[in-house]
Design a protein around this nucleic acid. Structure first.
Lengths: 192, 192
DNA sequence: CAAAAAAATTAAGGTAGTTTAAGATTTCGA
DNA sequence: TCGAAATCTTAAACTACCTTAATTTTTTTG
């Protein structure tokens, strides 16, 4: 198991002793997913929070079994799960799929609860992770309500150039809240 | 200072000894705002996180000095601030105004940092607060991208009936991301 | 309480983005 | 490597929501 990235990610916000580090690592498991495989399916239990070691994941909401809304993408070094389902033990509202072969490190809800008890510093770590996630989602909400589709595309491509390279237009459109046809027409206009 | 509501709010998630309680209370200050008064103005420093003791507040983003986007309402028992500005010491992006005479309890960033050092349990408390805020914002994002304006109004009025009573249609429209004129036409149609 | 300001309503005309559909291009699976 | 499936493009018709503007209703303030 390649634990360097996840330990570096954690060291950004809290410092662990080597005992703590070992205890933390003992709670993790590694899992690989093939392209197009589902990490999580709607209505299932969502047992794990996932740290992306390699590859690309996408979380999306499927309304009326037909319209996809992309909630987030996750690449190397991101954490992803259906947070409501994971934390509140609800059935999943989201699907999470691998957009390419991906390797993730999984931490179960039970082990996270243990971790909070054993090493309270992790409360701080996840406090910071959630704080950033909240700020990010709130800003995206403002952008969605105050910018045009074309402006939203510009913001997205400036903010996440690495993601832009990895995902197709249909998926970007569903993240921006527009149809693939309309995104295509935006892009062909802005080339001129 | 009426500290019963804020202590009850905290007791929902963590248990404090009476020493801890006293230390926490020593870091707070109470402030009252008149209807229409601004608690926070765009581009200012945002020094405080606010707990609402009474009244109603609204946070909004103003684009091109003309279009308002309501980011959140806060009534009794809610926490509100411009979180990015508060936590990352950035100039405020949001305005926060009192929609009626309101009393809030304020905790400064400096005192919050002290609190995290002195009583690490508060990391847990705010971890849970941010976790809920993140889940709430993500769900709102999904609703904004997947539901029609009329459906969004229904969801809002079912989820926040107390807020619905306190705020006017113009403000609800700016929360839903539509014009007041269009909200008016939705409402008059649905009466029939 | 009266006057002024703000909010809500209504309606006509306009536009950003959707829908449908068909063809062209790329990716994928056997 | 070939055929099938998915994605992308283009375009025309359509609609949800916006803009403007005038009128009415409600709220605020001196």
């Amino acid at each position: 198991m390649n634990t360097t990235p996840i330990l570096a990610n954690i060291a950004k916000h809290i410092a662990l002793t080597s005992d703590e580090e070992n205890y933390f690592l003992s709670l993790l498991r590694e899992k690989s997913f093939n392209k197009k495989e589902l990490i999580l399916r709607e209505s299932q239990r969502c047992e794990y929070i996932n740290f992306v070691n390699s590859g690309t994941l996408r979380a999306y909401y499927l309304s009326n079994d037909v319209k996809e809304t992309t909630v987030m993408f996750a690449i190397k070094d991101w954490w992803i799960t259906d947070m409501n389902c994971f934390m509140n033990l609800q059935p999943a509202m989201l699907h999470i799929e691998a957009l390419e072969n991906s390797q993730v490190i999984q931490l179960s809800k039970n082990n996270l609860d243990k971790l909070f008890l054993e090493i309270p510093k992790f409360e701080r770590f996840f406090r910071i992770i959630f704080q950033k996630a909240y700020i990010r989602e709130q800003l995206r909400g403002i952008e969605n309500l105050s910018l045009s589709a074309e402006e939203r595309y510009q913001v997205f491509s400036n903010k996440y150039p690495q993601i832009l390279k990895k995902v197709n237009q249909k998926q970007i459109a569903s993240y921006l809240g527009i149809t693939p046809e309309f995104l295509s027409s935006i892009l062909s206009k802005s080339k001129k």
